[in-house]
Nucleic acid binder design. Structure first.
Length: 277
DNA sequence: TACCAGGCTCCTT
DNA sequence: AAGGAGCATGGT
């Protein structure tokens, strides 16, 4: 697979580790929609790109080349990661099934709010809630809405947040946006070690250990985390034959997969949810 | 009708 | 530190 730049376009030839459907349906991102059979629109923060697939080529059409080059983690060698996972852990059927997945580097605030919404929720409904949040408060861009800023949510009438169908998460969204708008630092997390970063994030309303790990993985690209949801709990049950607390499962899996935990988690999650893909 | 979904907060031990 | 009740909403 090799990557080149054209006018307003990233081109990926022989995309062995870039599958549009797999990336979009791997449960890490929610603001996408299908335009045609081979074409998807993806919005991140206030930026848009179009994803198209041809025979042996993928095109990412965007005015923000650098942003989406980084966003799709295009400088990372996934062949090497998968080879290591296969040889050390024997999960080649899992990595083969999701070989087109990549771990995205998403906007920090958007990821925080999105995964607050994800708690005890299902993916189709998460998408709907985020859509309504963006339509209600997001800046009007060319033909689409940006994800609302912390300021826009914090200064909004609470009734608007309460009317997007988020249930009890509406209060968390509002409170967390207010904390961040008041100055809760998010950039300093980049240089924290993971356990300190997790503790720091869980001070936000609606952010527990699992949501914090998703934020660390999908926004800060920290790979020594292993978010445990109900699907990963099933994976753990298959392997260990018992149910344990989420904390115990996450510790076990992080210790096992070490600095490849984030990648392993995503391949295993995608594989376990096969029937939903 | 119940149970489930990328769990969290808050209250008890 | 660890465990459990309650929680909004919509899909199956």
């Amino acid at each position: 697979m090799n990557i080149s730049k054209d006018t307003n376009k990233i081109i990926i030839n022989n995309p062995t580790h870039f599958d549009i459907m797999q990336i979009l349906k791997s449960g890490q991102v929610f603001r996408y929609s299908q335009l045609q059979d081979n074409s998807y629109q993806l919005i991140s923060s206030d930026k848009k790109c179009l994803l198209r697939k041809y025979q042996d080529r993928i095109e990412i059409i965007t005015e923000h080349f650098d942003y989406f080059y980084d966003y799709f983690d295009l400088s990372t060698d996934y062949t090497k990661i998968i080879d290591t996972l296969n040889s050390q852990y024997g999960i080649s059927s899992v990595t083969e099934y999701g070989r087109g997945i990549r771990i995205l580097k998403q906007d920090i605030f958007e990821t925080i709010i999105s995964f607050i919404i994800s708690a005890n929720n299902n993916i189709p409904r998460i998408k709907g809630i985020i859509d309504r949040l963006c339509n209600a408060l997001g800046k009007d861009c060319d033909n689409y809405k940006a994800f609302p800023t912390a300021e826009q949510i914090a200064l909004a009438n609470y009734d608007i947040i309460d009317n997007i169908g988020a249930g009890y998460r509406a209060r968390y969204i509002y409170d967390t946006a207010n904390m961040i708008y008041q100055g809760y630092e998010l950039d300093s997390i980049k240089t924290m070690d993971t356990s300190k970063a997790r503790k720091y994030l869980t001070a936000l309303s609606g952010v527990g250990p699992k949501v914090a790990d998703c934020i660390l993985l999908f926004a800060y690209h920290k790979m020594d985390v292993f978010p445990v949801d109900t699907w990963i709990a099933k994976v753990y049950l298959d392997e260990c034959g018992v149910c344990d607390s989420n904390k115990k499962m996450s510790n076990y899996l992080t210790h096992k997969y070490k600095n490849l935990s984030g990648y392993a988690q995503q391949y295993l999650f995608y594989y376990k949810r096969k029937s939903h893909n």
